[in-house]
């Protein structure tokens, strides 16, 4: 007797692919499909979405097997919570605050993602990165960044 188990990692992956397939497939339907000979913008993505859904189903099917499954393991919640917003924050503030404060705060936010980072060393690191990046990109390469933006009073 073999023990039938479901590998949840694979099953979840399959579900994710199916969701992506549905998301793009439904949107493709809103585009002109055209014919195989004169394809519209929706034709190719629709076909691809269909294939993606089929592959997702196949992955789910193959997740049911007798090999035992594997745990997903720990998740980097704290990391994700600070790392992912860092580039978003930079995008939101680089024009308004200007390059210098934006890069300082972005580095600071990213630094908070680690348990090992002490507040004062995070500040020090952010300051060092800011000085280096400003010297290299703004002064050295003359990239068209405003160092201090219109949101700041000076």
């Amino acid at each position: 007797m073999k023990n039938i188990t479901i590998d949840w990692t694979d099953a979840l992956a399959g579900i994710l692919f199916i969701l992506f397939g549905l998301l793009f497939g439904v949107q493709s339907l809103g585009l002109e499909i055209g014919t195989a000979f004169r394809m519209g913008p929706g034709y190719f993505p629709l076909v691809l979405s269909g294939i993606l859904i089929l592959l997702g189903l196949a992955i789910i099917a193959s997740a049911i097997h007798d090999r035992g499954s594997e745990a997903i393991g720990t998740l980097a919640w704290r990391g994700a919570f600070f790392i992912l917003p860092a580039p978003i924050f930079f995008g939101l503030t680089v024009r308004g605050l200007g390059f210098v404060p934006a890069i300082f705060l972005t580095t600071l936010i990213a630094a908070l993602a680690s348990f090992k980072m002490r507040p004062h060393s995070a500040l020090l690191l952010a300051a060092a990165v800011t000085v280096f990046a400003t010297l290299v990109f703004s002064y050295g390469l003359g990239l068209p960044f405003r160092r201090f933006g219109p949101w700041l009073p000076f």
Binding site: I83, A86, P87, F90, G91, V94, I103, T106, T107, L108, A110, A111, A113, S114, K116, M117, S121, A122, L125, A126, V129, A133, F137, L143
Partner: peptide, 18 residues
């Protein structure tokens, strides 16, 4: 690593934006 990755995040933000 905890020093390296904030630096990485800073530079890749600049790089992608530039």
């Amino acid at each position: 690593y905890h020093v390296l990755f904030p630096i990485i995040m800073a530079f890749c933000s600049i790089g992608v934006y530039s």
